[in-house]
């Protein structure tokens, strides 16, 4: 008998003649905030990211152009195929890309594979810049999962702040293996 058959048989045996629990309903209202931008900004700053509200994408592109000479930066156009080689990806200083949903509750931003140029880039870059439209900020994680299709693409990730660790005596160090810094731009809602 293969391991698969052994395991499935043992599980079936363990579950035989059992009253089976039904899936629960989400019978509560998840937390709501009066000011989504303020809450989202407060959480992100607390976890080590910088947040700037801007009028348009143009301001972000100007910010990228104004980076010190010698810094390697890249702006990733959503839904565009890029081919980078690994060595280049490890040299990028600043990478800017578009998130699709942002969560006020915890500062997380959903980044689908199609918006990151290469799966490695959001992790290998020294500073990650995530751009999000104000109207794409939702209250909580439960709401966020209603807007994203986690399996439509091969990969996707919620990112909340720069990489960090507290593995040495519980001292918080921003910048573990991934980005050392994170900048979030919120593009104001056009009314």
């Amino acid at each position: 008998m293969s391991a698969r058959e052994q395991i499935l048989e043992a599980v079936t045996r363990a579950n035989a003649n059992r009253n089976r629990t039904a899936l629960p309903a989400f019978s509560y209202t998840a937390i709501q905030y009066t000011d989504l931008v303020a809450q989202f900004t407060e959480v992100l700053e607390r976890i080590g990211a910088a947040v700037t509200v801007v009028d348009s994408l143009l301001v972000v592109k100007q910010w990228l152009q104004a980076l010190p000479i010698g810094k390697t930066s890249v702006y990733i156009q959503p839904n565009l195929m890029y081919s980078f080689d690994t060595a280049y990806l490890y040299q990028v200083d600043v990478a800017a890309m578009h998130g699709t949903i942002a969560v006020a509750e915890n500062g997380a931003i959903w980044l689908p594979e199609s918006n990151m140029g290469n799966r490695m880039l959001p992790f290998s870059t020294q500073q990650l810049v995530l751009i999000i439209a104000q109207q794409d900020i939702v209250h909580n994680m439960q709401e966020a999962y209603q807007y994203i299709d986690t399996s439509a693409q091969g990969y996707g990730v919620f990112i909340a702040g720069p990489s960090k660790t507290a593995d040495i005596e519980q001292s918080l160090v921003i910048g573990a293996h991934g980005p050392i810094a994170m900048q979030v731009f919120i593009i104001k809602q056009v009314l």
């Binding site: 976890i47 969560v103 915890n106 909580n140 994680m141 439960q142 693409q153 996707g156 919620f158 909340a160």
Partner: peptide, 24 residues
């Protein structure tokens, strides 16, 4: 995801919650 990091370290969520579906 709402429970895990809050229970573990008091963070609102871990920095990365990576969803792997297909190989590159």
């Amino acid at each position: 995801l709402r429970l895990l990091a809050r229970s573990a370290t008091g963070q609102p969520i871990t920095t990365y919650s990576s969803h792997f579906t297909k190989p590159q």
